[in-house]
Amino acid sequence: MYIGTSKLTHTYWPGTPFAADALKNISFSVGQGTFTLLIGPSGSGKTTLIQHLNGLLKPSAGEVYFDGKKIGPDKAALLALRRRVGLVFQMPEDQFFSETVFDEIAYAPRNLGLDEKKVEERVNRAVAQVGLERSRLLDRHPFQLSAGQKRRVAIASVLSLEPEVLILDEPAAGLDPEGKGNLLNLLSSLNRAGKITIMVSTHHLDEIAALADNLVVLNEGGLVMSGKTKEILARGAELKELGLALPQVTGIMHELAARGLPVSTDIYSLSAACDEILQAKRADQR
């Protein structure tokens, strides 16, 4: 098993009146080089699960695996794990601890023992990858930024680690349309060309579903669906029951199909929708 869990249960505040099972008996795994989306309503356990995959929480029961090995309490092993599995937090502020944006992004490569020239190269590359290259923000305190700029810095400070697994918790929240588009292109190329394993938790499937191999769906701490993106998104009614939504273009394709236009409904991106509609229109004409 590359990454996954076996019968993972997590209880916050065990033994107190606030005790709550945030994860119940979760077993799943993803293969190396895959792209997985983790979805589920607010409070379903996405962030809790993601934190286990990075060794930030300790299972109340069950196991978490990475690269065939159980993630254990051993400190050295946990540090080694965090060099290979990068995690972008849901709240950028929770991740920041440096005095400047530069130091924040330089932290991971410095920690790897790279010399300052290599560190600077990595920082510059990460800054360009998140579209902050012309922004002159590197000397500021990470808190002296707009919401979207903080998000970009949080992503850059994990990219600079160049991990083999990239886990992002709701990474597009607060990004403007261009920032979102760039993030998706970046994730797609890291996954396809760089063979990086990617896992993203999100409430919004627009465009990103077109990149994902697999979908994992949580509800109230339990795993309720998991499988190929296409298989899961074909179960729109069940997702709706959970308060989740299909990509908007998928909704449009369903309406068109219902009106008799011969289009496929397994469409998750604007460009795929455009091709599909044109093809259907041409078929109609003949």
């Binding site: 349309p177 261009e178 273009v249 449009i252 604007l270 460009s271 455009c274 044109l278 229109k281």
Partner: peptide
């Protein structure tokens, strides 16, 4: 302004560019 229209507006725009 580096912004986007609604999904419907953007899709209509792509389709128009392709001759619809």
């Amino acid at each position: 302004l580096k912004l986007q229209g609604t999904v419907a507006a953007e899709l209509a725009h792509l389709l128009r560019q392709r001759g619809l």
